[in-house]
Amino acid sequence: MLKKDNLFGELLAEFIGAFILIFIGAGSVASLLLNNQSYNMWDIGLMWGAGVTMAIYITGAVSGTHINPAVTITLAVFRDFPKKKVVPYIISQIAGCFTGALVTYALFRKAFLAFEATNGMIRGSASSVQTAGIFTTYPASYLSNIEAMFVEIAITAFLLMVILAIGDAKNANAPQGKYAPFGPILVGLTIAIIGGSFGSLTGFAMNPARDLGPKIFLAVSGWGNIGLPAPNNYFWVPIVGPIIWGLLGAVIYDKGVSRYIVTSVSESDSTIASNKKAA
């Protein structure tokens, strides 16, 4: 019996998961900036990570909760994710992130207006990068686009290594069987520690949809060029860096770790015998 095509459900799940990511993540940054909540980078990273964890618990059984084109493309290249689903998944992810930004803005609209009035800020001006950064990422002022891309390269590669390690059936240290439900917590914790460690450099995008969806929202809701193409044409960095170098994380894990995992005594004996024969 053929498995029923559930593409619509998968795309809807990706949309909902991506929405949750921005809804919780951007909501935490909005509370920090607009309502003077006393958060630090670890707190912000933890809330973004918790948002991802909840998104996985809610939608993972349907789509796997990629909610990130870098993850989708990497799984299509290095695992068995169907390539025909890559573009639809990415469109749903971007749409979900756009909508997450829209709804978060709607809930904080009066707080935005009050902040702009208090600070004499004109939306769309250079100074409004501060409020735009609630939804999307910009590099620290001392980083060039290339330097920022290398930050995104490093942190996205690490994220993909963790995701692949958690999903590796050969990895005895990964949560499997009755412990499988702990996997989403580890993904969220990984995002949190990346945010706490490197978030001050680039805002730890690691996700083209998480960045582009809100930038599109900003571009059509008053921020204009601050959204797209962003100051110094930064928009391409959180797209190119995570997609290309998420693949690097897969190469590092597959070639540097997974291939050396011994899954049984017989396999270990076979490897030893082969090594002796080669010697």
Rank of each mutant, 00 (worst) to 15 (best):
M1D: 11
L2S: 12
K3G: 10
A18I: 04
I20R: 05
I20T: 08
I24Q: 05
I24S: 09
G27L: 07
S28Y: 02
A30K: 01
L32W: 12
L33Y: 09
S38L: 12
W42C: 12
D43W: 13
G45E: 05
W48V: 02
G49R: 01
V52P: 00
M54K: 05
I56Y: 00
Y57D: 05
T59E: 04
V62G: 07
G64E: 05
H66Y: 11
H66W: 06
H66Q: 10
A70V: 05
T72Q: 01
I73T: 09
I73Y: 04
F78M: 10
F78E: 03
R79M: 10
P82C: 09
V86D: 06
P88D: 04
I90A: 07
Q93G: 00
I94K: 05
G96F: 02
F98I: 01
G100N: 07
L102Y: 14
L102R: 03
Y105T: 00
Y105Q: 04
K110W: 15
N119C: 06
M121P: 01
R123A: 00
G124Q: 00
G124T: 03
S125N: 07
A126I: 08
S127Y: 10
S127K: 11
S127F: 14
V129C: 09
V129L: 13
G133R: 06
F135G: 01
T136H: 13
T137F: 08
S141K: 14
I146W: 11
I153S: 02
A154L: 14
A157M: 09
A157V: 06
A157S: 12
I166H: 11
D168H: 04
D168R: 05
A172T: 15
A174I: 08
K178P: 14
Y179L: 15
G183I: 09
G183V: 09
V187D: 05
L189M: 12
T190Y: 03
F198Q: 06
S200P: 11
S200I: 14
L201M: 14
G203R: 10
G203T: 10
P208S: 06
A209N: 03
R210W: 06
L212N: 00
L212P: 02
F217W: 11
I226S: 01
I226C: 02
L228V: 10
L228R: 05
A230K: 03
A230G: 15
G241K: 08
G246V: 00
A250L: 06
V257Y: 12
V257P: 07
Y260L: 13
V265K: 15
S266D: 12
E267W: 05
E267T: 09
I272Q: 15
A273I: 13
